[in-house]
Design a protein around this nucleic acid. Sequence first.
RNA 1: GGCGACGUAGCCAAGCGGUAAGGCAGAGGUCUGCAAAACCUUUAUUCGCCGGUUCGAGUCCGGCCGUCGCCUCCA
Length: 481
Amino acid sequence: MALHVYNYLSREKELFKPLEPGRVHMYVCGPTVYDHAHIGHAKLYVAMDVLVRYLRFLGYKVRYVQNITDVGHLLDTGEDRILKGARRERVEPMEVVETYTRSYFEDMDALGVVRPNISPRASGHIPEQIELVKQLLEKGFAYEVDGDVYFSVEQFPEYGKLSGRKIEDLEPGARVTVREEKRHPADFALWKKAEPEHILRWPSPWGEGYPGWHAECTAMATKYLGDTVDIHGGGLENMFPHNECELAQSEAATGKPFANYWVLVGSLTVNGVKMSKSLGNFLTLKDALKLYSPEAIRTFVLSAHYRGPLDYSREAMMAAEQGVRRLHNTVRTVRARLNRTMPEGTADLSFIADLDPFREAFTKAMNDDFNTPQALAALYDLARQVNRWMDEGRPLSRGTLFAIDGMFRELGGDVLGIIPADMSRGIDSELLDGLIQIILNVREDYRYARDWEHADALRDRLQEIGVIIEDHPDGPVWRLE
RNA sequence: GGCGACGUAGCCAAGCGGUAAGGCAGAGGUCUGCAAAACCUUUAUUCGCCGGUUCGAGUCCGGCCGUCGCCUCCA
């Protein structure tokens, strides 16, 4: 089965077909950089990361654009998030932005999230946003009122097609403070006039102001990816109003579909409630990374389907931690055997044939709308099979071990990002391995002489400094705690 | 009030018409000088509740209950 993707626009799984064969243009709504990222962000960006990785695994050339929102959005108090952050920390607004942009990339790097090809900043694309507003005014989709420019939802009959809302429904129940100057309560701002105290401001044909909440995504997506992007990703909770408005203003401006596939990710919850900055129930990624390994956080995120919700708990995280550890142990043992197996022997065809079903199960799961929980299950099944082979003492040729390691590297490493290419955690692995091998050789001599006292003393002392020794039938394997 | 999502073992979570994946935790066992790791066995007659369709339903339809999200900045 070829890749199928659930498209929120049609509410169906559709066969994935990019506009241009072999190439995928993808846009994902990025973070507003006014505070540190938390593990809720990890769910979205790890999910998107795996999506991109898998598309590349399939051979697509992907251009992945993810914006950095550094033009403040208004809080319900009328305050600008970034300005508020600046006041709180007594620094320049752009200093706030710079600090948290760096923090964001630092966290994503730590999580093994592959960086987008382009990370455009909203503040660096003001002319493009002004151009968008001008176009919408010219085409009659927008109107200006005293320095503010609004998008007129009534001029765009398809407004609501993504979120399933109807303009009529928005009227009566709307608790939005109805601004007098709006022609329709659901009209949204494309450009806002800057009040005197507003620091972030730019000149425009409508006076000094700043862009509306959704303009940046349209401006930057179309600039770098064209009028129609293949995949537009983001958080499910932003479907309305953000994605809906983005879609409306984009299609009104270009007259073309804005995105062919809308891929939206479910929220991370804590005790069933969404993790968010405004609720204060969040765990920053920096703190999370002190508690859990990056691979465990990724495994935790990937253990649930990306569209559904996922509930965070210490217990669930530990389950993920223990789970990947098992995977790592298997891979580590395979690699250790590979290192001491003589460079002879091609892959045993019977083993290779036994390997195929796992690869098929994995790709089948991923092709079905990126079903990572099932893909993960295929990896666990593979690990069990490999462990069984090693336990049975069947002679595994170098070629076979190489094929097994290769499959883990490709599926678990390249695609899911939960199996490091190098398990030594950045320590000079050659030197460390050499040193430990010397100690292990000494210990093996003691063991051969049945001098358990000395052999165990070496093992205990290594364990004290965090080096765990496992004795396997064909030799010892070491790992860092 | 409107729109939407979800409710599967102690916990996390797949499955969406054919007789309950996977991970963690628990229990028993095997291997081992011991340990670690691993492996084997075991843990839901049942998928929020009540009806209906069907030879057959977590899986489709209707109703009810519960939890959550969005409708205002949030990924």
